[in-house]
Design a binder for these strands. Structure first.
Length: 512
RNA sequence: GGGGCUGUAGCUCAGUCGGUUAGAGCAAGGGACUCAUAAUCCCUCGGUCGUGGGUUCGAGCCCCACCGGCCCUACCA
């Protein structure tokens, strides 16, 4: 059950890459979860942002003839725009180039340094001048740099190392004591077996680059990009600046991440927290990847039709333009359970759109409005206390609540769509369009409308615009979130005799 | 190469602790209906649970091998 407070984060996205459907997947899921928790009345903090340091950024900026800061200002803005397009409701958008982040990173890592978990050492390795980075022997292809195919040179550099190896036992204990800290279980096992395989200390600073956060106790060094990035979750709650805020939100955080960064979030990050003397994050939820199964996307989506289509080639804006924001959100949330890999295709989204949105939900809104218009004078009739739909609605609410609590938007929406099916089915049985206006007909239509009202509340976290639109059509003021879920899902709690209007189809059926 | 996750109906996915006849939605076929966006409702079809072994009274589930997909291997949700 809700603890009354909900802090959820996405990873911060690296600004060298444009926002695409992969990053959108994470962000939309986090947004819907945040919205659900706001709906049930939790004090909610939803954090996303951009990761802006590192050599690649500096290089790219130079190539464009601008300063790294100017470059990241421009690219970070693209993420904010993309999230606006997807109706993302973040409470805070963090950038690692902000002063507050420099401050928190300095405080946090100094703490680890003082606690004795950071040591200076000389890093010797094979260095690729093209990449300006080190490689290990087993990363090489034919003894050469995998991306530049050139010979590597033996080099050495003074680095600070985080003594990750000292945390093996403590991490294992933490995993043991907190079986639900990393979900799903399959991903937890993955992290666990990585730890059991033995941990090596990690190099966390560079002297060869300057676009990063300087090491407070040794000015010639900057922190390596991943080490400052993870700390953003603390920056946003004022670590080192506002202890009351930290108390309030930490460690009860929910990190939503993709499976490729398990290691950083489930091994490094908890160890870093331990080293700094704070509790590790309470919950890391790892989702899978959306895969494009070899099906060809339309020309407007892919730059080159002959090339294999990658998810990262699809921009949120192009999809939203084609389908609308809520259908895109719905598809991402509904089609694949969080935690396993899923399939992404234009055929898939079209199918969901037509079946779930146009035929089931959209058509229900339309048919109900029409029949209420002809049989109940266009005013919302009173729902029946003995309607079967009352029980079905309560059931859907309970199932949705349970599902969202478990980070399972897919199941929450499934439960909601079962209720939509029940309303369509109930109308079919009663056939109110055949009868003369009567109290019995009113009871049928009033109950169906009341169920639709509850459906509207339940879809709000996934499709806020659509929920608001239906809310208006069924004659209600304000928003489906007013007063919170418990109040809104009370059967018969809405004002009666409201004006119900039909309007244009919410989701016109698609022919493609 | 090494470490790991995964494979269930044409498609997308459930399947608890090993326990009767493996479920849902979509798609397909049939019927009903005509309020509604050719929508809706009811019924039906559809599975050698990747392959081959093993453990067990009993395996989709546990063990081994192999095959395919994917992630990590120190910058990709």
């Amino acid at each position: 059950m809700a603890v009354g407070r909900f802090y959820i984060t996405t990873p911060i996205y690296y600004v060298n890459d444009a926002p695409h459907m992969g990053t959108s997947y994470t962000t939309v899921n986090a947004d819907a979860l945040a919205r659900w928790h706001r709906l049930i009345g939790d004090e909610t903090k939803f954090l996303t942002g951009t990761d802006e340091h590192g050599m690649k950024i500096a290089e790219t900026a130079e190539k464009h003839g601008v300063s790294p800061q100017a470059w990241t200002d421009a690219t970070s803005a693209r993420f904010e725009e993309a999230w606006a397009t997807l109706n993302i409701s973040q409470d805070d958008f963090i950038r690692t180039t902000q002063a507050r982040h420099y401050e928190t990173v300095g405080t946090f890592l100094t703490k680890i340094y003082e606690n004795g978990y950071i040591r200076k050492d000389t890093y010797r390795g094979l260095y690729c001048v093209g990449c300006e980075d080190y490689y290990t022997q087993d990363q090489l292809v034919d003894g050469k740099c995998p991306s530049h195919n050139r010979e590597l040179v033996e080099m050495e550099e003074d680095n600070y190392f985080f003594e990750l190896s000292k945390f093996e036992d403590r991490l294992l204990e933490w995993f043991e004591a907190n079986p639900a800290a990393i979900q799903p279980a399959s991903k937890r096992n993955e992290a666990l077996s990585f730890i059991k395989g033995g941990l090596k200390d990690v190099s966390i600073t560079r002297t060869s680059i300057s676009w990063g956060i300087p090491v407070p106790w040794d000015e010639g060094h900057v922190f390596y990009v991943w080490y400052d990035a993870l700390i953003n979750y603390l920056t946003a709650i004022g670590y080192g600046r506002d202890e009351a805020e930290v108390e309030k939100w930490w460690p009860h955080v929910h990190h939503l991440i993709g499976k490729e960064i398990i290691r950083f979030h489930c091994v490094w990050w908890p160890a870093m927290c331990m080293a700094a003397g704070i509790d590790p994050p309470a919950h890391v939820f790892v989702h899978g990847w959306l895969l494009v199964g070899g099906k060809k996307l339309s020309k407007s989506m892919a730059a080159d039709e002959s090339a294999p289509v990658k998810l990262t080639d699809i921009t949120p804006a192009s999809l939203v333009e084609q389908f609308g924001v809520d259908p895109v959100r719905y598809y991402l949330l509904r089609n694949t359970p969080l935690g396993t890999d899923g399939d992404f295709s234009i055929e898939g989204i079209t199918e969901r759109y037509n079946a779930d949105l146009a035929n089931n939900l959209g058509n229900l809104v339309a048919r109900l409005a029409t029949v209420i218009g002809s049989k109940s004078g266009g005013r919302s009739p009173e729902p029946s206390e003995t309607s079967e739909l009352k029980d079905r609605a309560a059931e859907a609410v309970a199932q949705a609540r349970d599902a969202w609590e478990r980070f399972a938007p897919q199941e929450g929406l499934e439960a909601t769509w079962r209720l939509i099916g029940a309303v369509n089915s109930a109308l079919e049985v009663a056939e109110p369009w055949k009868a003369e206006p009567s109290p019995e007909v009113d009871a049928v239509l009033g109950s169906a409308l009341e169920a639709l009202r509850i459906i509207t509340v339940l879809i709000w976290p996934a499709m806020p615009d659509t929920a608001q639109a239906i809310w208006g059509r069924i004659g209600l003021d304000g928003s489906p979130t007013d007063g919170g879920l418990d109040a809104q899902v009370l059967w018969g709690s809405a004002p009666q005799a409201r004006v119900v209007t039909k309007g244009d189809p919410l989701f016109p059926r698609r022919k493609d």
